[in-house]
């Protein structure tokens, strides 16, 4: 049973056909990496899973919930799906631990003590327990992104979405974030990751999806994909990213 299932999904931004007949299935525990040139619709694709972008045609079912249905309970959906953004998007007025505690307290109704304990555990898991009481401005980019991952994990999501989580980071911080993601993948989290980090895709993912101009051009198991992508455009793209 797939936990995410796109069927002939279309989306337009005005006249722009951003998603053009997407068919995609992700099984529970699978790690799928989405790659493709800029503007091909990768961000839009994963944002539809959380309904940050509504779709206009087709069906999209996430963990049994019909996301295409305007009446679906988005807040219930979003509780089960965690999202990590390129720009971290931490709440600047809250400390690291408060950023993590906010949703468990207000959405799940956990009490302060329990949610703080859990937040501390998550901070330890992402490797920065000592930064609990710092405001985001005091943290490096890599630390901020790790807090953002911990914040998403605090809701105990069944699915984690990552939209170019390392693109805004300097080289030395990329690794610390990727390490956390790798660990998550090993623990069996279902993940959809938009990234240009080919190394991460090779080691940690089960499948690679290549997008271009709003379509999925290729969808292969990771090993096959890197052994030789079937599609010419995917091969071209890959050689550009690798020798870059």
């Amino acid at each position: 049973m797939p936990i995410i299932e796109f069927h002939d999904v279309h989306k337009w931004f005005g006249p722009l056909h951003v998603l053009n007949g997407i068919d995609l299935k992700v099984d529970e525990g699978e790690v799928v990496v989405v790659i493709g040139p800029s503007g091909s619709g990768k961000s839009t694709l994963i944002r539809t899973i959380d309904r940050l972008e509504p779709i206009q045609r087709g069906s999209l079912v996430v963990d049994g919930m019909p996301v295409h249905d305007p009446k679906a309970d988005v807040n219930a959906l979003r509780r089960r799906v965690g999202m990590v953004f390129q720009q971290f998007n931490l709440f600047p007025h809250l400390t690291a631990v408060e950023n993590i505690m906010l949703a468990p307290r207000k959405v799940k109704g956990l009490n302060a003590a329990a949610s703080r304990k859990r937040a501390q555990e998550l901070l330890a898991k992402v490797g920065i327990p000592e930064k609990a009481d710092q405001l985001p401005v005091r943290l490096s980019g890599g630390q901020q992104q790790r807090v953002a991952i911990a914040r998403a994990l605090a809701m105990d999501p069944k699915i984690m979405l990552f939209d170019e989580p390392t693109s805004a980071l300097d080289a030395e911080m990329i690794r610390e974030v990727l390490d956390v993601m790798r660990q998550l993948a090993q623990e069996g989290m279902t993940m959809v990751v938009v990234t240009h980090e080919i190394g991460f895709a090779r080691e940690a993912s089960d499948r690679v999806v290549f997008m271009d101009a709003g379509r999925i051009i290729e969808d292969s198991p990771t090993g096959e994909f890197f052994a030789g992508a079937r599609e010419e455009r995917a091969r071209q793209f890959l050689s550009k990213v690798i020798h870059h």
Partner: peptide, 14 residues
């Protein structure tokens, strides 16, 4: 910032 609002909504906050 719009990103923060999206982050909050993606956590399930109404």
């Amino acid at each position: 910032d719009k990103g923060q609002i999206e982050a909050a909504r993606s956590l399930g906050l109404s």
